[in-house]
């Protein structure tokens, strides 16, 4: 069995078989991170570059740990400390990195499509670690892996995604992934945060959190991007919290065994109350643990093998 592609750019283009292969491979990698010696020699001699034009804690660390546990050399470049501040273009930076002969380039960029441009330009495997409001495929894969592990499957589940759908690459990738795997997806948020035409992606839209989470198996809360308060898409954090936060008052509408997810970083007290984030239904830290395994799986499946 083989993942027959050079790059991982989005969930949209992945088939159900490919997603299953990635998730099954990731399941097997969980065990490596529980060993006393958390390292295998699989990618010895391979080089992985993490090229991050946007801030990140989880994704960048997760890719770095994934590479290192597989025995690869991982290098991190963040825009703020690189020649980007001297005005180097993305293409020039990429060509220079290519000249040093890495095997995989992981990129996060504020411009949607940036990873796709690199994929066409470079011979290396490109993994999209988030491009604008477009896709964040590794987040969706780790979410699918976590749901599958906790619920035994994905098909037939009711999943509510609540928050700023319009600006969320996590929501977009998850909608692609969840619908492909047979889940029913409901999105909810203030009207200014619901993109027009989102129904075409196969989701049901609600403008109130209470309707969205009713009988839900999974609730995925999105980070409210506080930097957008200035853009007049919501009046205040306080009002947002009042109408769209997940808290003790409304969680009872969901199923008794509901699982709560959040891609991080959380705004405690805004989109999610602390007692819910830390409560028995929360699988937020399982998501982080599984993130390493999913990224190990992708690095493993994309590298090696002479063409």
């Amino acid at each position: 069995m083989k993942l027959n592609r050079k790059d991982i750019l989005g969930i949209q283009e992945l088939s159900v078989e490919e997603i299953n292969l990635i998730l099954e491979t990731a399941d097997s990698f969980i065990e490596v991170s529980t060993r006393e010696i958390k390292k295998v020699p699989t990618l010895r001699g391979k080089t992985v570059i993490n090229l991050f034009y946007e801030a990140s804690t989880r994704t960048r660390t997760s890719f770095e740990i994934a590479g290192k546990r597989l025995g690869a050399d991982t290098i991190n470049i963040s825009a703020s400390t690189s020649s980007v501040v001297k005005g180097e273009t993305l293409i020039d930076t990429a060509r220079n990195l290519e000249a040093m002969n890495p095997d995989v380039i992981v990129i996060r960029h504020a411009a949607a499509g940036a990873p796709h441009m690199l994929a066409g330009l470079l011979r290396q495997s490109i993994i999209n670690a988030g491009d604008g409001a477009h896709e964040h495929p590794t987040q969706a894969l780790l979410d699918l892996m976590t749901i599958r592990a906790k619920k035994g499957g994905i098909a037939g589940l009711k999943v509510a995604i609540v928050g700023d759908i319009a600006h969320s690459r996590v929501a977009r990738s998850n909608i692609h992934g969840l619908t492909k795997m047979g889940a029913a997806v409901i999105v909810a948020g203030p009207a200014t945060m619901i993109p027009r035409g989102i129904e075409k992606m196969g989701v049901v839209v609600h403008t109130q959190i209470e309707e969205a989470i009713r009988e839900a198996d999974i609730i995925m809360m999105l980070r409210i991007q506080t930097e957008r308060e200035q853009q007049n898409i919501f009046p205040s954090l306080r009002e947002y919290a009042q109408y769209f936060s997940l808290n003790r008052g409304n969680i009872g509408l969901a199923r008794k065994d509901v699982l709560i997810m959040h891609p991080g970083p959380m705004n405690r007290g805004v989109e999610i109350s602390p007692d819910i984030a830390d409560g028995p239904h929360s699988i937020i830290l399982d998501q982080v643990t599984n993130g390493v395994a999913v990224r190990m799986a992708l690095l493993y499946l994309l590298t090696g093998g002479v063409s």
């Binding site: 993942l3 099954e24 491979t25 097997s28 001699g45 799986a297 493993y300 093998g305 002479v306």
Partner: peptide
């Protein structure tokens, strides 16, 4: 024990073997 991650032909064989569980 699944030995896939320790194989010496991962870099040369085109087909990635399916990873099994180690426990």
């Amino acid at each position: 024990l699944d030995i896939t991650l320790y194989r010496d032909d991962l870099q040369t064989s085109h087909l990635k073997p399916r990873l099994g569980k180690t426990d």
